[in-house]
């Protein structure tokens, strides 16, 4: 079971040159949440995820973790890198075999005692048996997505961020991805998904948000500075 985590991002601002991407964006993420964020192309969805993951430095903004006081993003970056995992829209496959990619994630998790067995179990979990020795870069989009989710499973993050996880996937791959995400939810991992197809995640979503005018809004369209997370239809209390 994942250790409970409540993390809030406050007034995040980010600008690329003259292009304002985020301005006062705020979001709360807690264990067991599955937050689906929509927004137009270029609205800043990916930038927001990268800031949450600790990969992209915002121009300003604070972070609240559990009951601690707000601290600048810079001071909490290490914590973010430790607790949050970001999956690219096109998952990056390290050169070498599929197994090497999954072993890499297992090696980075000191909590895994029997690495070989864990890797084999994870491969089985993802339904990737028989592909272990295949070059990871030559896998299909759906298989790469499964490898990325398998690495995430071994990484065991408290928050999992997914950038368009079902884009360009066929129905079977999409169903498989959703099943894997369901299992992450069940284990308590907080999930944040940015997508153009929110209805795909209807079953999983506990909160639906929209990135509009550089800020995060609830689905009802209000624009609070601090989001009061709105439980969606399928909100689950654990």
């Amino acid at each position: 079971m994942i250790e409970t985590l409540n993390i809030g991002f406050r007034n995040i601002a980010k600008r690329y040159g003259s292009n304002l991407v985020l301005d006062g964006a705020s979001i709360d993420i807690s264990s067991h949440n599955c937050i689906v964020i929509t927004g137009k192309n270029g609205a800043g969805k990916t930038t927001l995820l990268r800031i949450i993951a600790g990969l992209e430095k915002p121009d300003s903004g604070d972070i609240l973790i559990d009951d601690a006081d707000a601290e600048p993003w810079r001071k909490q970056r290490k914590r973010l890198l430790k607790s949050v995992m970001y999956l690219h829209q096109q998952p990056y496959m390290l050169s070498g075999s599929l197994r090497r990619n999954i072993e890499y994630a297992a090696r980075l998790n000191p909590g895994i005692a029997d690495r070989a067995a864990s890797v084999t179990r994870a491969i089985h979990w993802a339904g990737l048996e028989g592909l272990e020795t295949q070059s990871a870069t030559s896998l299909s989009g759906g298989q790469k997505q499964r490898v990325a989710l398998t690495r995430a499973r071994l990484r065991d993050p408290q928050i999992l961020l997914l950038d368009e996880p079902t884009a360009n996937l066929d129905n079977e791959s999409r169903a498989r991805t959703l099943q894997m995400l369901r299992e992450f939810c069940a284990s308590g991992t907080a999930i944040v998904i940015v997508t153009h197809d929110p209805e795909v995640f209807d079953e999983l979503a506990t909160h639906k948000l929209q990135l509009l005018d550089h800020r995060i809004h609830t689905e009802t369209g209000s624009s609070p500075d601090v989001i009061e997370l709105e439980s969606a239809r399928h909100s689950r209390q654990r």
Binding site: A53, G54, L55, L81, K82, V84, M85, Y86, L87, H88, Q90, P91, Y92, L94, Y104, A105, L108, N109, R151, R155
Partner: peptide, 14 residues
């Protein structure tokens, strides 16, 4: 090289 290599390693906890 894809910058995602660095980011993937970092986000996997490296």
């Amino acid at each position: 090289a894809d910058r995602a290599a660095w980011e993937t390693a970092r986000t996997l906890g490296a």
